[in-house]
């Protein structure tokens, strides 16, 4: 168990964390490069910048949408996101590990706030999962990863809470820590390759759609050639 924990906290952590950071950077760069290329090729270069930016901001900070659209779901989702992002980054124990490992740390949450955020994340994550399963309209739109993600995301929160607060014996502590670390690492690895990649792609979601519909001039002929229907009506 201890050897496994050492491995999970050492090489496996470095591997998965690097995959997450570099993988996110990779899709971000690929995304931007793709957009630049689309813009260069575009026949019509007029971009409604004002509208695009305001829509992007609306989606990034969905204050307006809370009350218009399914208010309960929106509030749960927003609180879940806040806990999900803030807690791991500003948790004292995590920052302490960065201080020891790379030599620098940053501002941290007090234990009480961290505990509250952890519990809200767990509860709202569960509610989101139940919403997926329970609402038939949501079920119809869902892929397997949509059910798996809320569950996977709250596993490190549950195990982390257990480690941080329960007066458990060292053996239970280590088992719980192992679950915490391994589930966290699974999230790291899966993050850049699944829908969770929206954590970096979100700011470009509106711009991508705007650019994607700018077809290059005479692209219809290329499409026809590719489909072996040159000259025929497409």
């Amino acid at each position: 168990m201890e050897a496994l924990l050492d491995f999970a906290q050492g090489p496996l952590f470095r591997l998965t964390f690097a995959i997450m950071i570099l993988g996110l950077l990779r899709i971000l760069i690929l995304d931007i490069v793709g957009m630049v290329e689309a813009y260069r090729k575009a026949g019509d270069k007029s971009i409604p910048w004002g509208l695009t930016i305001s829509r992007t901001l609306e989606w990034l900070f969905p204050v307006k949408r809370i009350l218009n659209h399914r208010p309960i779901y929106s509030i749960i989702s927003i609180l879940f996101h806040i806990g999900l992002i803030i807690t791991p980054i500003f948790l004292f124990a995590h920052v302490r590990l960065w201080e020891q490992g790379v030599g620098f740390g940053w501002w941290t949450l007090s234990p009480q706030v961290a505990d509250t955020l952890t519990i809200t994340t767990i509860v709202f994550g569960l509610l989101l999962f139940l919403g997926r399963v329970g609402v038939s309209r949501a079920r119809a739109l869902s892929r397997p990863q949509d059910y798996l993600w809320p569950v996977l995301l709250i596993i490190p929160f549950i195990s982390g809470y257990l480690c941080a607060n329960m007066g458990v014996s060292p053996a239970v502590y280590q088992a719980s820590m192992l679950v915490h670390v391994l589930s966290g690492e699974l999230i790291f690895v899966a993050l850049p390759f699944t829908k969770i990649a929206h954590c970096v792609l979100m700011p470009f979601s509106q711009l991508v759609s705007v650019l994607a519909w700018k077809f290059p001039a005479r692209v219809d002929e290329d499409v026809a050639t590719t489909l072996d229907k040159k000259g025929a009506p497409v």
Partner: peptide, 25 residues
């Protein structure tokens, strides 16, 4: 062209991450 870019960047990222992982800490 995008397919190539996708593959190269993936190989690069994966190798870089493996490099970090197998370094004798």
């Amino acid at each position: 062209a995008v397919a190539g870019r996708t593959k190269y960047s993936f190989a690069f990222v994966l190798a870089l991450a493996i490099g970090f992982a197998i370094m004798p800490g």
